[in-house]
């Protein structure tokens, strides 16, 4: 246990809106993030979910893991559906057709539904300024369809459509920075978060719910199945992701960037890649190349810290 006051764990809200009995894989940290986030958001929340792991494992008729209003329409449109829910609620409250109350409207999708097929709907919803929270649960590939690469898959990872082979190191592009794309919409709140840091996650969810206008959360979601990782390491790997710079935690509040978990000296990337089958083929030179890039990216964050942009 690092980075967490162990005695504070009991203080985490108990209002569970996502029940046991869901069909997520053993050790799924994405479903953990979903549960924790909705423990914070509570009952006055409506969710528009994209097609993907979380939709499939939570909603096979007649079983739903949700005990808040939830809708799934399609893959690429969670942000649009959520924006519709928000616009609908606002106008109905304005016209006195329903009681005025604070309802958190959430759009949720995986990295494929966010960084790839859903990015247009996301950009539109953020630009229009709906008072909603969009959450990208990033497990760094299309896990639901069998671990195909997405634009959020990290460099060097082997997936079923970016396989490592005799002449390939696996994924040959660098992870798309959707968080910064969201930030470029000048929305009031943008953050990266991880269920491995539940209190940081909780705080960010509270802020996202509180701001007026769109908030974007990019949540690290370890996938033991797709990453070929021992399920029991799903939380530990999230800490290593932060400590190695593979997934830094930061927030951008009204344009001001703050690194949430400061890591003055990044850990060797090997600590992060070794437990994961998707990186096992990488040679030292490639790891060094990735390490250099992550270091530069982390330095960029440090330079931006405190600046308004």
């Amino acid at each position: 246990m690092e980075g967490m006051n162990v005695f504070a764990a009991r203080l985490f809200p108990k209002d569970n809106r996502f029940v046991s009995g869901h069909r997520a894989c053993q050790g799924c940290a994405e479903v953990l993030a979903v549960r924790l986030i909705h423990q914070i958001l509570g009952r006055n929340t409506m969710v528009a979910s994209a097609t993907g792991c979380m939709e499939i494992i939570s909603s096979s008729y007649p079983d739903t893991a949700w005990s808040i209003p939830w809708i799934h329409v399609a893959f690429e449109n969670a942000a649009a559906v959520a924006s519709g829910i928000e616009a609908g609620l606002q106008i109905l409250m304005k016209k006195g057709r329903m009681p005025k109350r604070k309802i958190n409207v959430v759009g949720m999708a995986g990295d494929g539904g966010t960084a790839d097929i859903g990015i247009q709907a996301l950009s539109g919803a953020l630009e229009r300024g709906h008072d909603m929270i969009y959450i990208c649960y990033d497990n760094e590939a299309y896990m639901n369809t069998g671990v195909q690469r997405s634009s959020s898959t990290p460099y060097g990872a082997s997936t079923t459509t970016s396989p490592a082979g005799k002449i390939s190191i696996g994924q040959q592009t660098w992870k798309k920075n959707v968080t910064m794309i969201a930030a470029a919409h000048n929305i009031p709140y943008v953050a990266t978060a991880s269920p491995s840091y539940p209190f940081d996650l909780a705080e960010k969810v509270r802020k996202a719910a509180k701001v007026k206008g769109p908030a974007y959360l990019h949540v690290y979601s370890a996938c033991p199945t797709g990453w070929r990782l021992d399920p029991k390491l799903a939380i530990t790997i999230g800490r290593l992701a932060v400590q190695t710079g593979a997934f830094p935690l930061y927030e951008i509040e009204n344009g001001k960037l703050k690194i949430s978990v400061k890591t003055p000296k990044l850990r060797p990337l090997q600590d992060y890649t070794k437990p994961q089958g998707r990186f096992r083929h990488l040679d030292d030179a490639t790891i060094a190349e990735i390490e250099k890039r992550l270091f530069e990216e982390y330095q960029k964050l440090e330079r931006r810290e405190g600046l308004i942009f």
């Binding site: 869901h22 079983d63 739903t64």
Partner: peptide
């Protein structure tokens, strides 16, 4: 639609 909230509890995983 699924009208029973949290009905997934019946899946004994």
């Amino acid at each position: 639609a699924i009208t029973v909230p949290g009905s997934a509890r019946q899946n004994r995983t």
